[in-house]
Simulated assay, not measured.
Amino acid sequence: MRHSLLLLCAFLGGCASRPPLPLRVPAEEAAWFKFPASLDASEQVVVPATVAAAIQFAMEDFRPRDTKPHRGSDPVEACLYQRQSFDVEATPSVEDIVLVRFSLSPGACIEEGPVMDMGSTYAVDPRRERIVAVQPGTPPAEAASFTFPMELPLQGLIHIDGNTAAAIQLALDHFLPWEAPPSRQPACLDRRDSYDVTAAPGPEGVVLVQLVVDDQRCPPDPSESVEATSGKPLQEVVLYAVDIRTQRLLSIGRRFQRHP
């Protein structure tokens, strides 16, 4: 299977040394959960592969998963260290650049008055796997190569609430660990900009995250599983259920579907 080596690598935890892989909910506690037949179309957010990769690169810089609050931090400061405290907006820009904006989620980290928004805007080139500029924060000499617009372009703009954005990052961090070595599968399957992402709320504080290969980045291999009636390759779907309250992976599954 296309992802079997990647998933085995992630399950065993031997492919990444920093940051550690996301924690799993013990099997006996997760037994109640069953994946639905499909994600709720009315509440799902669909993130194209290049945009999902750009968000992941930006998030790892903005709030690395292994970052901890400093000793003696108060509840508000501790809250500001959490990925789920920040909504995400992302949109394609010029020359394959994707703009990613992190902003404090409404109602997050409030204690005895409003908290200053600690957000940032990133210009990311997911094809070259690099951050081009950050606002604020990029030194003037480096910032000259890119000029941020006054507002994010509306065309293609995607808004993701903080809980859903954090769940997506947990799933992607587990699916493609940052320090994983190249697998024996096609090189495109090791790239973060090869997977379209769909996320939707699930039951009881669960966020469902679905990963599907972008066929334009990785054309299907005719030797893979095929549909009995048409003889065409089936599309593999990897599913994650994330317990957003504890920031742990509840369940991981796979299924196959027809290519669109």
Rank of each mutant, 00 (worst) to 15 (best):
V197R: 11
A41V: 14
E95K: 15
G72D: 05
D161E: 14
V46G: 03
S93Q: 06
Y122K: 02
C15S: 08
V76K: 01
Q56K: 07
R101V: 07
F146V: 01
Y81R: 00
D196P: 03
G231D: 05
F62Y: 12
L39E: 01
A90F: 12
D117P: 00
R127C: 08
P181I: 06
L154I: 15
P182K: 09
P220V: 01
D243R: 00
I168V: 15
I55A: 14
D243K: 02
L12C: 13
G253H: 05
I97W: 11
Q210T: 11
R24S: 07
A228N: 09
E179A: 15
I131H: 02
E227Y: 14
Q257P: 05
S38D: 15
G14P: 11
P106Y: 13
Q84E: 10
A16C: 13
E204M: 12
D87C: 06
I97V: 14
P260S: 09
S38P: 05
A90Y: 08
T67A: 13
R254K: 11
L21D: 14
A54L: 11
Q210H: 11
A200R: 05
A167M: 03
E142I: 10
V226I: 15
I160G: 06
L7T: 02
A31P: 10
A27V: 12
V94S: 09
L208N: 04
L99Q: 05
Y240V: 07
T121D: 01
F102I: 06
I244E: 09
Q235E: 09
D117C: 05
Q169T: 13
G72N: 02
P136V: 07
R191E: 15
P222K: 13
W32T: 06
V207L: 03
L39F: 13
G162M: 02
A228I: 06
P20S: 06
F57R: 11
C218I: 12
K232C: 10
E60S: 15
Q185P: 01
